[in-house]
Amino acid sequence: MSVLIDKFDVFAGGFWLTLQICVLAAVGALILGAVLAVLRISPVPPLRAVGTGYVNVFRNMPLTVVMFFAAFGLPALGSNADFLRIPVLDSLFSRLGTDLPYFRFALVALVLYTAAFVCEALRSGVNAVPAGQAEAARSLGLTFGQNLRYVVLPQSWKASIVPLGSVIIAMIKNSALVGFFGVVGDLSQTADQLTSAEGYAFVPVAIGISIGYLIMTVPLGALLDRIEKRQAVAR
């Protein structure tokens, strides 16, 4: 077990990189997922079709395949995902700005994949609001956007927040895949590095990276439990 102490800096570095990719992917997926959810409940049929089509594709495709498309498809199209080199943000998250594009590719894949689930979590919250609420808003003359903003969304987020949390926890665990698509130094690739290249025993290393993931997911789960309890009281 001495590897946990001897190589603490390696574990810590892996944890830090995984945390970075998860924070960025979560923010991206929440934004894209919210846009998709609005499309899926919009009164305009072509917009609904776009939202539904997106969810059908990305929710039903294995994340590994999405990662393959990002890591090999984007370069084939001549893109290094340079649109993610966002000023200020790339100084905060240094991997965004590196010339090696794999961090950005992995981020693209995680966001595209997770957004489909975020969309459905948000939509389940919207569906939990009784239809009469939106009908009353429409009959007052509120537009679709006003209806969402003042009537539906303020009531739907409560029902969305727990499924949304589950989606983000799943995403954190899914991020373990990025090491296999060229991202060097995240938590799971750290395990590979320590065991195959440096010859450490597998089990202690696996325990180390497990602790790393649990530090991210367990507090998030506990937070969700608390929110759920508070909702039960409010009801």
Binding site: P130, G132, Q133, A136, G141, Y150
Partner: peptide, 28 residues
Amino acid sequence: AKLRSEVGMVFQSFNLFAHKTILENVTL
């Protein structure tokens, strides 16, 4: 939307906005 704003509607199940006060319901 403009037409609907000129036609008041009252529903069987009231459909008051559950997250808003009575006065906010009337002023929204």
